[in-house]
Amino acid sequence: MKFSKEIDDNILVKRALIEPDDFAYLIEKYQSKLFRYIQRTLYVNREDVEDLLQEVFIKTYRNLNSFNSKYKFSSWIYRITYNTCISYYRSRQKNKELMTVQLDSKDVSKLVAEEDIEAEAIREYDTKAVAAALASLAENYRNAIVLRYIEELDYQEISEIMQIPTGSVGSLINRGKAILKTYLEDYGKTK
C-alpha cells in the first residue's frame, strides 16, 4: 500500500492490526503533530520528546484494539499523548524540576491573536515571555489552551482528549486565558 495522508485512519488501524509494518503509516501521519504538541506542553529536549513519542506510539500499538471507530483516531492518539505527558509532568513535579514550554513565534502570534488581550503591547511580547506565562499555568489550563489555540482542536476533541465535559473545557480555557492575560499584562508593566 502506498502511503497517503488522505487514507482514512480507521483503515490504517485495521491494516496495522493485520500487518505490524503498516503501523508505520500511522506513525508517519502523526509524529510531527505529536512531536510539536509534546514540545509545547513540556520543556524537554529533542531526545526526550522522541523518547516520549516512542512511548506514545508503543502504547498506541498495544491498545489498538481498544480504539472505537465511532470517535476520531486523532483525538484518541492525542489522549494517549496527553496522558503520557501528564504522567511525565507529574513525575518531574515530584522531583521539583523547573517547568517551561517551548513555543516558536508562530505559536505566540496564534496564542496572542486568540487571547483577545487589548493592550497593543501584547503583540510585541517575545516568545520567551509567552512561553513562561504558559508554563506558569496549572497543567490542565495549559493543556486546554495548547490544544485549543496552538493545536487548533475544537471543544469536542479536547473533551475527548482530556476526558472532561465540553463545558469544563470552556471553563478551563476561559480561566486559563484570564490568568495568562494577567501574567502578560504584569509582564508588560514591568518591561
Binding site: L17, P20, D21, F23, A24, I27, Q54, I58, Y61, N65
Partner: peptide, 25 residues
C-alpha cells in the same frame, strides 16, 4: 524524525510487542 517509525517497528519486533486482544478491553 523519519527514523522514528523504523525505530518503533524495530522495538515492536524485537520485544515481540503485540496489540492487547480485543476481548480484554
Amino acid at each position: 524524525m523519519e527514523k522514528l517509525s523504523k525505530k518503533i517497528l524495530t522495538q515492536i519486533k524485537s520485544e515481540k510487542i503485540t496489540p492487547i486482544p480485543k476481548w480484554r478491553f
